[in-house]
């Protein structure tokens, strides 16, 4: 694991009560020790999963591109653009874009605008819970270079240092039309087989983790949340 010492030190300092090592009585009366971080979470690193057959992969990529399930997690001011996107005015369902309420079932993560460090921590957890191949659509200039929050003490400047980004939609804020154009760009990328963000994340895992840990100072979760 990365930053072994730093990590364990931080773990002790910021650990939540429910994640502390504790003794639990089993139904048959014996006492066992539970270490939630190791027992309840998967500690494996992500693996690179290469596409196998070219022809089949092309077909599957077409299916993936036409069925984009978006996680309903608004991270910043841009999440207000998503309700008009799925309601009658713009109706993104026509293009195979559907909203899902849980990270397990979604493939597209819309980072909608500025990311505070507190939110970034949740974003990392959520991104790692999504099942690959997964795509990230970053909205607004805040995710590109910090936008109007470029010199803020608590918002990140470049999203691509923390999670791999497939498509940036520029603007402050981009309107739903721009978001639809971003979805079309993402579809092109997937169909070309270029949207391999999950594999990129697994390849450069150490780099991403060290960047994340540099700013998420109360790192009190496992290094990889599935």
């Amino acid at each position: 694991m990365i930053n072994e010492n730093n990590n364990s030190e931080n773990l002790n300092k910021f650990l939540h009560k429910e994640n502390e090592i504790r003794n639990v009585e089993t139904p048959d009366g014996s006492i066992i020790q539970v270490d939630p971080l190791n027992d309840y979470f998967c500690t494996d690193r992500p693996e690179v999963k290469e596409p196998k057959n070219k022809v089949i992969e092309k077909f599957l990529n077409w299916a993936r591109a036409e069925s984009l399930w978006v996680l309903g997690f608004g991270t910043g001011c841009g999440s207000i653009e998503i309700p008009p996107l799925v309601t009658p005015r713009f109706d993104a369902y026509r293009f195979g874009v559907q909203m899902r309420p849980t990270p397990r079932q979604s493939n597209v993560f819309i980072i909608s605008g500025y990311l505070a460090v507190k939110t970034l921590k949740r974003v990392i957890r959520t991104y790692e819970q999504m099942q690959g191949p997964k795509y990230v659509l970053a909205l607004g200039s805040c995710t590109i270079n910090g936008g109007m929050y470029w010199d803020s003490y608590n918002t990140i400047n470049r999203l691509d240092h923390y999670i791999p980004v497939d498509v940036y939609v520029a603007g402050c804020m981009p309107r739903p039309e721009a978001l639809l154009a971003g979805f079309n760009k993402l579809k092109e990328r997937i169909k070309d087989g270029r949207a391999e963000g999950a594999n990129e994340y697994a390849e450069k895992f150490d780099w991403y983790k060290s960047n994340q840990k540099k700013i998420v100072k109360d790192w009190n979760m496992p290094d990889y949340n599935w």
Partner: peptide
């Protein structure tokens, strides 16, 4: 609701996509 809604073939594409995801924990 006043929308056009999904295309008629969307359930099949969703199924293909779901069966072809690379990760499944």
């Amino acid at each position: 609701a006043g929308r056009y809604g999904i295309p008629y073939y969307q359930p099949w594409i969703d199924l293909i996509k779901l069966y072809s995801l690379r990760d499944s924990i």
